[in-house]
Every structure is written in structure tokens, then in C-alpha cells.
């Protein structure tokens, strides 16, 4: 079965999910994982879909032409075999909260330190809040630490970054519990 990644984005209004799901249903596509959120005034959908026979992404894009006419942008990416499967993600789960007066480079500086230390970002949300005069940036980052890295080491790195960027940063471990 061929898998595709489908991205749809456009000005938010009621009915975007419904129209998308209807087209997928008519095509005979399965929706596997998906993430659908409002970002600013835009509604952004990212879906992993599959179809038992369609292998050509143009065929899928074609079916979405009516949505594009309604002002939504649609993009389809063909996944390589196995690209739909999430790999095993071992390691300690850490939540990092970064917030402070908005300034250039917050995401970059934080992500740079994480990347240099082989820390995997598995979920990232950012939001600009506050007023136009005093904008505040909030970044919520869920990460997986590599086996050889302790939470305290990450805390130390983030503390250094906090002083350098003049933002507030806190790190805490998340322990999923199976009950």
C-alpha cells in the first residue's frame, strides 16, 4: 500500500476538515496519523494517508483541485516504503518551556543547542502572545534525550542559554505511566 503525506493549509473557517475528509473518503484513502491545528488565522492539516492502488501523487492532488479553488493550498508527498512507520524512540522524555520578550533567534538558539547534543525534538509548539507593544514568545518543546545524556546536563545547557538569551527556560521530565 502506497503512503503519502498530505499537507493542507488555508484561512480558517468551519468545513475544512469535512471537505478534506470527504475527498479522501471518495478516493478510498485511509487516514493514519494526522495533526490539525489552527496557527494564526490559518488552519493547517498534516496527514499520513494511504491508498490500496493509487501510487501517483498527481492523482491525489488532482482530487483536491476543488479545495485549491476555495483558497486552500494542498501539497502531496510520496513516502518511501516504511516512511509511514514511527521508529522506536528510546530515551528520557523532557519538556522544555521557553518564554520571554520576543526577539529574533529564540527558536534557532534553543534548537541549535538541542541539535548539537543530539537531542531529538518530537513535538514543538510556538506562539506569539502579549500585546503588539510588548510581544511575548512562548515555545513548548518536547524532546527525547539520547541515552548518554542526563536531565541535569540538559538543565545546565538551558540555564546557560537562559542567561545568554534573557528568556525564561524550564526543563522537566515527563514520565508516561502505563496503568
Amino acid at each position: 500500500m502506497q503512503h503519502f503525506a498530505l499537507t493542507i493549509i488555508g484561512r480558517d473557517r468551519p468545513g475544512i476538515v469535512s471537505s478534506t475528509a470527504e475527498i479522501l473518503y471518495q478516493l478510498g484513502c485511509n487516514i493514519a496519523d494526522s495533526s490539525n491545528n489552527i496557527l494564526g488565522g490559518q488552519f493547517a492539516m498534516i496527514l499520513i494517508i494511504s491508498h490500496p492502488t493509487i501510487t501517483d501523487r498527481d492523482e491525489i492532488e488532482q482530487a483536491f483541485s476543488q479545495l485549491e479553488e476555495q483558497g486552500l493550498s494542498v501539497f502531496v508527498r510520496t513516502l518511501k516504503p516504511g516512511g509511514e512507520q514511527r521508529p522506536e524512540l528510546p530515551g528520557e522524555l523532557c519538556m522544555i518551556s521557553v518564554y520571554g520578550s520576543d526577539k529574533p533567534g529564540i527558536v534557532y538558539q534553543v534548537a541549535k543547542v538541542l541539535s548539537e547534543n543530539n537531542i531529538n525534538i518530537i513535538d514543538l509548539n510556538t506562539k506569539l502572545i502579549g500585546t503588539a507593544e510588548r510581544p511575548v514568545y512562548v515555545m513548548m518543546c518536547e524532546t527525547l534525550l539520547p541515552e548518554n545524556l542526563e536531565t541535569d546536563e540538559l538543565k545546565a545547557m538551558m540555564n546557560e542559554l537562559k542567561n545568554r538569551l534573557h528568556v525564561d527556560i524550564s526543563v522537566r521530565t515527563v514520565t508516561p505511566v502505563e496503568l
Partner: peptide, 13 residues
């Protein structure tokens, strides 16, 4: 608030 999972609902928390 805790992040819960369940033996009867695998692969989801």
C-alpha cells in the same frame, strides 16, 4: 495531570 497509558490501549498516551 499525568501522562497516562494503558495496557488495554497500546501505543497511545
Amino acid at each position: 495531570v499525568m501522562r497516562e497509558g494503558c495496557m488495554s490501549v497500546p501505543d497511545y498516551t
